[in-house]
Amino acid sequence: MDAVREEGPTLVLDGGLATRLEELGCDLSDELWSARLLHEDPDMIRRAHRDFFAAGADVAITASYQASVDGFTARGLTRAQARTLIASSVGLAAQARDESGGGIVAAGIGPYGAALADGSEYTGDYGPGIGADALADWHRQRWHLLAESGADLLACETIPSYTEAQALVRLLEETPGVRAWFSFSCADAEHISDGTPLARCAELLADREQVVAVGANCTAPSRIGGLIARVRGAPAVVYPNSGETWDAAAGTWRGSSDPEAFGAAARRWQQAGARLIGGCCRTTPEHIRRIRAHLD
């Protein structure tokens, strides 16, 4: 990942891991989401990673986004078993990388709200008393597990609030040998989900040697150009949703997504300055294949 800081080639990230798992027939209707398969069907996670590498991805993000020790122990596992499962997410991605001939493994660090599974991961509204200290305490165990797991870097993703970014920066400072990117969920083309300007978040992270990129994910593709323009002091990372929208009342996705148009948009994001480009919710290996084709 040093090449990103040194103006090397644009790297292609993978797409929606959960989307691919559902395409393969997995039922993810569970608070643990794709992390449940770390326990129940790890081979399927490895297969999904391998499919994205085959489509042209340079980087795999692990299935640890929604994983937590408390989430696994609530299912009857011991804390030791839970820690082993979280670390195994890196091993599965690394196996898929090796089987595919090379690549980078980014250990996914999802927000506190992802473990709550109550929608707060998209607002950052965690309630009174949940400040940077409490958030750092909650993240610390998983952070250190993944920092010591052999991953190439950490992917701090779908961060909804400035306060949570501050908490994660504290943990980054506790692990001086670790590198990470910081990617925020965004409400529009200028602000992250809690209303903080993305430019302010970029200032918090600017010129930190450990931070390889700053940007946005889990937001609409139409916002990405404006968000890239707000990133200063670090390369930009972007991996938006497919362009479909979630209808919470009906419990379904609306609209459609054209992988070819998504790939063409990725070329525009590259020209705007993005150095790591991929997809989030509802993006498939075909979306990644089209990104690869347009960037090449």
Rank of each mutant, 00 (worst) to 15 (best):
M44F: 01
A48P: 02
R254C: 08
D118N: 11
I86N: 04
R36L: 15
A93C: 02
T175N: 12
R97D: 10
T73L: 07
P235W: 13
Q270F: 10
I45E: 02
Q95H: 05
I291K: 00
T252Q: 06
W269Y: 06
T62G: 02
V105E: 05
G103D: 13
A293N: 00
L295P: 00
A60P: 06
A57T: 05
E244R: 06
A96C: 05
I86H: 09
T196S: 10
W246F: 15
D137R: 10
A180D: 00
R223S: 11
L24N: 04
R46V: 10
G129H: 10
S242W: 08
L276A: 08
L11H: 12
W33G: 03
R289Y: 01
A155Y: 14
D27M: 02
L116F: 08
E164L: 12
A261Y: 03
G16L: 13
A236Q: 08
A236L: 15
L205C: 04
V231I: 05
N241E: 11
D27N: 03
L154R: 14
W246Y: 07
G177E: 04
T283A: 11
P176S: 12
R20G: 03
A249M: 10
R232E: 07
T196V: 13
S29P: 01
D207N: 11
R223P: 00
G113D: 09
A106I: 03
C26S: 10
S256N: 09
T10N: 05
R200W: 06
D2K: 14
A48Y: 10
A199N: 15
S34R: 01
L24I: 14
W138R: 15
A213N: 01
E99V: 02
A234D: 03
H294N: 07
T284P: 02
T78P: 00
P111G: 08
M44Q: 06
E260I: 13
I291T: 01
G110R: 08
A82Y: 07
E99C: 00
R46Q: 06
C280M: 11
A216W: 08
G25H: 12
E7Q: 14
A293W: 00
S34T: 01
A63R: 03
V169I: 15
R292K: 09
N241H: 13
D258G: 12
V214I: 08
A216H: 09
T78I: 06
D152L: 04
W253Y: 08
A234F: 14
D296T: 02
G251Q: 07
A216E: 00
R170S: 05
W33T: 02
G56K: 00
L145E: 09
R83L: 01
S256F: 13
L17H: 04
R223N: 10
G127E: 11
G273R: 04
S222R: 01
H39W: 15
D125I: 11
A199M: 12
A249L: 15
T163L: 13
G124S: 13
